[in-house]
Amino acid sequence: MEKLIEIRNISFGYDNTPVLKNVDLDIFEEDYILVIGPNGGGKTTLLRLILGILEPWDGTITFRKDISERLGYVPQYSTFNKNFPITSLDMVLTGRISSGNFLRKYKKEDIEETEVILKKLNLYDKRNENINDLSGGQLQRVLIARALVSDPAVLFLDEPTASIDITSQTNLRDFLDELNKKMAIVVVTHDPTPFAQTYKHIACINKNIFFHDRGELDSHALEQVYGCPVELLGHGIPHTILKRH
């Protein structure tokens, strides 16, 4: 499998307070990484650094040549401007905007591609509705659709389960599993349980990063990250995230 993104020795902080220190991470083709850690541990910050929203204090992030513009981003539910009046279709279309085409009008293929994705995500009927009139699950799918129309090689999701119900969570998990055949997936979450059956690696972040293969994470490693004993349950044996402890 080819390496898509190589992160080396990244440090970053807000004002003078460091949030991330000497973080290394590799993202490979078809990878499925869960990024977990306590609140304020730097999970979202790491995502924003990879996506170029923030500039690191130190360190390098290298992308395989063809993918630096093919990063799909599903931000936290609450980050976009809910004041902005826009329909689902137009919101998803903005995913086709890039630095190379923002001065040009949308092309026919932009709209066609958007409609294909909307159909795939069961949003086609809602295409002319204002995003503020959608349910949490529907809005979540709009945000995913917006990320998918840019044909991403890596899909980053920030707390995708925070605002949706259990059924939507199961659908989301199955959908990501399906997508994982074509693209790498990185999920930032405080609650890894919904993804317990499908993830391939886990990265624990609390200023530093601890990277684990599937199944090797134990309570000791988590204590190191969270700074106190924690308990995580994976529902249904054998799909536990943690070894029995």
Partner: peptide
């Protein structure tokens, strides 16, 4: 007219516009 897409992008979701490498 010329910058409409860009203005919509920053008004709707500035973070996302940054992630899409817009100026």
């Amino acid at each position: 007219l010329i910058f409409f897409k860009g203005f919509v992008a920053i008004a709707l979701d500035e973070e996302y516009a940054k992630a899409r490498k817009l100026p």
